[in-house]
């Protein structure tokens, strides 16, 4: 469980002066970034800072977006969106197996996210948390080398979110994909990731390695220091009162 030892191997994601712009607005302004295989990275930034644009660029979803630069990403990439994006007309298991086959693999993935027995349910019968678990199972079943997650817990309630954090971390430890988690939640980033990036005006402003053992607690005082550092980078000043 030491992802840092793998840094010597070829990085999973490699960006060199990556630029993306919409009309005359430059959203990504020459980004250089290496993500080693198996590293858990969180990407923070204000809304509109280009977090999603970066993620979509790595996912290859930015058709018709002007840009330049060099980008390498692994072959097997999975994406988890903010909404679970389950097809309402396919049962949960069929949703998990969208684009692949292997009933048993799908069942195993569902069991892994705690949805054993819900294979035949319709997506409309799932709660928000369950739907997002099913979406996680769908991304896992493809055994991704890179997991891209675009604010995957943003729409969940606080309790469900905490449980999902534990689940995501567990799944990461078992399958060891590289993870790029886009989030606006500083605490989420600190608790989950081994490395936190802050995107600011199209560039990576802060690149922070969080060297604390897992599982981490929100109350860990050392994490508090990271937290202050990141909030400062995001331009948030905490009111002492």
């Amino acid at each position: 469980m030491a992802p840092h030892t793998e840094q010597l191997t070829r990085p999973a994601v490699q960006l060199r002066s990556l630029t993306r712009s919409f009309e005359d607005r430059t959203v990504l302004d020459g980004i250089d970034l290496d993500i080693p295989a198996g590293q858990f990275v969180a990407l923070l930034g204000h809304s509109g800072s280009g977090k999603s644009t970066l993620l979509r660029a790595i996912a290859g979803l930015d058709h018709n977006v002007a840009g330049s630069g060099h980008l390498t990403a692994p072959e097997r990439v999975s994406v988890v969106f903010q909404d679970s994006r389950l097809l309402p007309w396919r049962r949960v298991l069929d949703n998990v197996l969208l684009g692949t086959d292997g009933q048993d693999k799908g069942r195993a993935a569902l069991a892994e996210v705690g949805l054993k027995g819900r294979e035949r349910a319709w997506p409309s019968e799932l709660s928000g948390g369950e739907a997002q678990r099913a979406a996680l199972a769908r991304s896992l079943v493809r055994e991704p080398e890179l997991l891209l997650a675009d604010e995957p817990f943003g729409a969940l309630d606080a309790l469900t979110r905490i449980r999902m954090h534990g689940l995501l971390r567990q799944l990461w430890q078992r399958h060891q994909p590289s993870v790029l988690l886009v989030t606006h939640d500083v605490d989420e980033a600190i608790v989950l990731a081994d490395r936190v990036l802050v995107l600011d005006s199209g560039r990576i402003g802060v690149d922070l390695t969080i060297d604390r053992p897992h599982p981490r607690s929100y109350r860990d005082p050392l994490l508090g220091e990271y937290r202050e550092q990141l909030l400062a980078a995001l331009g948030v000043v905490e009111d002492p009162a």
Partner: peptide, 21 residues
């Protein structure tokens, strides 16, 4: 369009996209 994006992410072929989505 979110489902179109999903189909791209899941690597569906054009035929699969038509049939399943």
């Amino acid at each position: 369009s979110r489902f179109v994006e999903l189909a791209e992410v899941q690597g569906l072929s054009r035929l699969q996209f038509v049939r399943k989505i």
